[in-house]
C-alpha cells in the first residue's frame, strides 16, 4: 500500500486530512451557535439570510473560488489586512484554504444542526426553564446533548465535503505541494501527467474513504438525520 502511493500523494493525503479536520472543527464552533440563533429567529428577511448561507450548495465552486481570490488579493481589504498582520498573502496559502473551505462547507455543517434544532421539542426547553436553567445552561445541558446526532452528522459531512473539495482550492490555493496541494488536486495533476496507475491508487483510496465515512454516518444517524439531500453537489 505504501509503495502504491507516491510520497507526493502521501503528502497530499496528510494535507487534505489536516485541512478537513481544522475546517470541520472550526465549522462546529461557528455553525452550532449560528444554527441555534437561526432556528429561534423569526423575521421576514429569514429566507433571504438562509439563501445566502446555502449559496455554496448550488454555486459552482469556481464562482465562489473566484470571488474569494479577489477578496484574498493584497489589494483588497481582507487580503491587505492579512498581509499586514501575518506578513504573507492569504491567497495560495494553507490559511487561505481553511478560510475558503469554511465558507464552502458551511451549509453542510449548518443544515443538519439547523434541522436538528428546529425539530427539537420546545417543551424540553420550557421544562428546563421552569427548573431554573438560564438560556446558556439550557443550550449546553439540554439542547446540545439532545442534538448530539445532528452535530456528529454535521461534523462528518463538513469533513467529507472538505476532503472532496476541488474547484475552490484550484482557484484560491493553486498547486503547491505541502502547502495547498490537496488530494483532488494531486489526482488531477497525476491524470494530466498521464500517471494513470498512481491516479488509480489515489482514486480508490478516496472512494473507499468517502464510502466508509458515509456508511458510518448513515449507521450512526439511523433514522433520518440525513434526511436532507446529500447529492446537492
Amino acid at each position: 500500500m505504501t509503495e502504491a502511493l507516491t510520497p507526493q500523494a502521501w503528502q497530499a493525503i496528510w494535507l487534505t486530512l489536516k485541512l478537513a479536520l481544522i475546517t470541520s472543527l472550526l465549522l462546529m464552533v461557528v455553525a452550532t451557535p449560528l444554527a441555534w440563533v437561526l432556528s429561534n429567529w423569526q423575521h421576514k428577511t429569514k429566507p433571504f439570510v438562509l439563501s445566502i448561507l446555502a449559496l455554496p450548495l448550488v454555486l459552482p465552486p469556481t464562482v465562489l473560488g473566484f470571488y474569494l481570490l479577489v477578496a484574498f488579493s493584497p489589494q483588497s481589504t481582507l487580503g491587505g489586512a492579512w498581509v499586514s498582520i501575518t506578513g504573507h498573502p492569504l491567497a495560495f496559502s494553507f490559511e487561505g484554504l481553511v478560510l475558503g473551505s469554511l465558507i464552502y462547507s458551511l451549509p453542510f455543517a449548518l443544515q443538519p444542526l439547523y434541522s436538528g434544532f428546529t425539530q427539537l421539542d420546545r417543551r424540553y426547553l420550557e421544562v428546563a426553564q421552569t427548573l431554573g436553567l438560564t438560556s446558556f445552561q439550557r443550550f449546553f445541558k439540554v439542547v446540545l446533548p439532545l442534538c448530539k446526532a445532528p452535530a456528529i452528522v454535521a461534523f462528518g459531512l463538513s469533513f467529507a465535503h472538505t476532503v472532496g473539495e476541488f474547484g475552490v482550492v484550484l482557484m484560491i490555493g493553486g498547486n503547491i505541494p505541502g502547502e495547498t496541494q490537496v488530494l483532488s488536486i494531486a489526482l488531477y495533476e497525476q491524470v494530466e501527467a498521464l500517471q494513470y496507475q498512481d491516479a488509480h491508487a489515489l482514486s480508490l483510496c478516496l472512494l473507499i474513504f468517502s464510502f466508509l465515512l458515509l456508511t458510518g454516518l448513515y449507521r450512526f444517524s439511523g433514522k433520518g438525520a440525513l434526511g436532507w439531500n446529500l447529492a446537492s453537489r
Binding site: 427548573l131 431554573g132 446533548p145 439532545l146
Partner: peptide, 29 residues
C-alpha cells in the same frame, strides 16, 4: 418559582431518572 409538568413527561432522554432528578435539585429553591 413556577413548575410545570406536561401530560407527556418530557424527561431529558440523555439522562437517567436519577440524572433528571439531580438536574432539578441542582437548580432547586
Amino acid at each position: 418559582k413556577i413548575g410545570l409538568v406536561f401530560q407527556q413527561p418530557m424527561l431529558f432522554p440523555h439522562l437517567t431518572v436519577k440524572g433528571n432528578l439531580a438536574l432539578a435539585q441542582q437548580y432547586a429553591s
